[in-house]
Simulated scan of single mutants.
Amino acid sequence: MTTDFVHPATVTSWQSPVDFYATLTRVIDALKQHGMTLFADIDQSAAAASVGLALRPTRLLLFGNPKGGTPIMVANAHAGLELPLKVMVWAASADDVRVDFLNPGPSLSALYGIDSAQVAGFGGVAKLLEAALST
């Protein structure tokens, strides 16, 4: 059963063909294989449990490539608020594991004046995440 949640147009959400932990492994492996640095792996469900609350399995990964992100932050220091990149792996239900990618490109261009050519590479990140789920 697929559960629908509202999300902005800058978020791409894919349904995974495998369980939560296999999905998480696929995503992390794909990022590392493509030269991304994993800056943080935040277990949001564990954080909820630490204060006595329940949350579906949810992991937020902060990642990026300093070669791509640094020039953006040089162009506008405030743009660092949109970086690093973010991907979330979560279980909407037992049979609906999702991968959500927040593409900062539109915000970086519209809100921070970053040239669209500098943010074009974020579309490639979405493609590599999608490919990781199809293997």
Rank of each mutant, 00 (worst) to 15 (best):
D29H: 09
F20A: 03
T12K: 14
S109K: 13
T25N: 12
W90G: 11
Y21H: 11
P71D: 04
L31W: 02
A79L: 06
A40S: 12
T70P: 04
V51H: 05
V119T: 14
S93M: 07
Q33T: 14
G121E: 06
A120L: 13
Y112W: 14
T25R: 10
K67F: 10
D100Y: 01
M36F: 14
V74K: 06
L102F: 10
L60V: 13
M36W: 00
G35L: 07
S16T: 04
G64H: 02
A132D: 05
A77M: 15
N76P: 08
L53G: 04
T23F: 04
G35P: 09
M1D: 13
M88V: 15
A117E: 11
P8D: 07
D100R: 01
L128D: 08
V87K: 01
K86G: 02
W14D: 04
D115F: 08
A9D: 15
I42K: 04
G52Y: 05
A54C: 05
H7W: 06
S13R: 13
G80M: 11
L102H: 10
V87F: 00
F63Q: 02
D115V: 10
L24A: 10
R59I: 07
A49N: 11
T135C: 03
E130Y: 02
G68P: 01
T37N: 05
G105P: 01
L133W: 11
V27K: 03
R59C: 02
V18I: 13
Q15Y: 12
